[in-house]
Design a binder for these strands. Structure first.
Lengths: 116, 116
DNA sequence: CAGCATCCAGTCGGATACTG
DNA sequence: CAGTATCCGACTGGATGCTG
């Protein structure tokens, strides 16, 4: 039996790690093809993208739709459960915004995608 | 210059990782001594506790107060900036609560600390 | 009590090459 | 285009022993 000592752990297990939050962030705005995601999530490698998507799928936050075409076409989108994370991710983004303003010195950082 | 591609990254850099969120979670309820934290944050080792506290301190979320006593006494508490994470952590907890209810099968999990 | 140093296993994640 | 396989370095985090 899996034991958690706080609900925080549950959530972090699902959106923690380097890429999960970001991938979800973009999928929430609408379904995306694999290649689109690869461009949107700056710096992610193919391996990590696929791996991240598989994990999100296993956790029921993302669904995968395959079209029988050549060349192959695959679309990912958030499930209802995944979409329910929207206010959470929004809160994380907003806090990060405020934190960056207060903490980082001018010219020492840059945030390229601000709006949720 | 440090570049972020989304504010999400900023926040995750600060509260991501295995222990940071949990330590903050308990500190938000009030100042704690090192030994208290070690008991509250179930499963954390001394090394990780200290390391986590140092990182939170460096990020300006936690402050460290030392009393000149023998035996030594050290107290940690959240700064104003750290306290501002309260709604964020609360959102993470609440979502985890709902997720666990919907997703986990009865008797396959246990959450020992539910209330924020 | 609070903290540091050391050692070490496991995981994470990046680079690259390859398949249908 | 979407995905897999492999290799490997770097980092995370745990165990233990020691200091003031």
């Amino acid at each position: 039996m899996k034991v958690y000592y706080c609900n925080l752990e549950v959530t972090m297990e699902v959106i923690g790690g380097k890429w999960k939050g970001l991938v979800l962030y973009y999928l929430m705005k609408g379904p995306k093809r694999t290649s689109e995601l690869k461009q949107l999530v700056h710096g992610i490698t193919q391996k990590m993208l696929i791996q991240t998507l598989r994990e999100l799928e296993a956790d029921g936050l993302v669904s995968r739709k395959m079209f029988n075409q050549v060349p192959p076409r695959v679309e990912y989108s958030t499930t209802e459960l995944g979409q329910s994370l929207e206010p959470v991710l929004r809160a994380l983004c907003q806090w990060g915004d405020g934190y960056a303003d207060k903490t980082f010195a001018e010219g020492e950082f840059q945030i390229l995608n601000n709006e949720f």
